[in-house]
Write a protein that binds this DNA or RNA. Sequence first.
DNA 1: TCACGCGGCTAACAGCGTTAGCCATCTCTC
DNA 2: GAGAGATGGCTAACGCTGTTAGCCGCGTGA
Lengths: 182, 182
Amino acid sequence: MNPDQQPLRTSRTPRAVQIVAAARDLLEERGRDELTMRALAERLGIRAPSLYKHFRNKEAVEAALVEDALADMGTALHTALAGASPTDRVPVLLAAYRRHALAHPALYRLATTGPLPRAALPERLEEWAGSPFFLATEDPHLAQALWSYAHGMVVLELDDRFPGGSDLDLTWQAGARAFTEP
Amino acid sequence: MNPDQQPLRTSRTPRAVQIVAAARDLLEERGRDELTMRALAERLGIRAPSLYKHFRNKEAVEAALVEDALADMGTALHTALAGASPTDRVPVLLAAYRRHALAHPALYRLATTGPLPRAALPERLEEWAGSPFFLATEDPHLAQALWSYAHGMVVLELDDRFPGGSDLDLTWQAGARAFTEP
DNA sequence: TCACGCGGCTAACAGCGTTAGCCATCTCTC
DNA sequence: GAGAGATGGCTAACGCTGTTAGCCGCGTGA
């Protein structure tokens, strides 16, 4: 477990890079339901079956998006913690998590909902992306609990599940306080 | 806001009750992807278009399932809290939440993921189902934070997102401790 | 020069939600 | 008892989805 060094990335052909970029744009612009093989191909100026020359199936395209999402989130969290004083780590981490997730909502949902395509991901990427929670809490179980809290907040906020008029800033603060040693 | 009295339920014809029951069985047995109008009809011995004599579309069938899921979860949580001493409320509530969600995983996911079909739900059902979190914390923001934590834990556990070998009992305990006044 | 592979293409299939239109049966009213 | 209308089935079909089979033009290396 070496959380300081960023893990390897899956290698992609130049065309595959273009496809993933187009898929990401399409996902964020139109939502997950409209990320179809035909719409993706159209955005690239080709027909849907041609995509299968570059990716085995749609799941493989999504796995590439998940990989990018994990890498981006990991970078955001590690960067945020690097500039935080030891007593501020939990609120700083939570703020970075929330900001990053809400800035790329559809990609966040794609990467964190449903089963993780672990077989298609680089070796230690998942662990590295989550390690900031351990760095902030210094306890493995509390780290998982804090991560669950952050994920639950984001996902409920994205789905508009909180009662209307809720001041979510205060709710995030209440959670941060609960997870900070008194 | 009267959390003690269970809210009204949507009225259903006898045939609609049968359809929802079949949909629930199908959902839990085969998963969300296989809950299709054709498969649901087949289980009832009819053809898919006939379902539209009873529900406007698939979304309406799912809304009925969501209503049942919320009512069941609300009952489970209120019942659990009724038998808890004031100091035990948070861990008792979390245990009941986890147990109930994991006992009906597909229904839980259907009811808590994506936008809530509020227009199709009885008036105060959503609020009533969530009120145990307020009863356990006596603070609205802490209640929302605790609910987010519980939802995050359940959803990550259902999706097998925690590292292999994690002792989730300990993680639940760590979270319960964080949300309990010291 | 020629083979070969890369990366396009069209046609097509099965499965999805959904609609249109038809028809048997049951019940209520006169 | 007779007719009317609602109820709840049905088939056929449409447009969408992911995906496969099979074809072909072009660029590159031997």
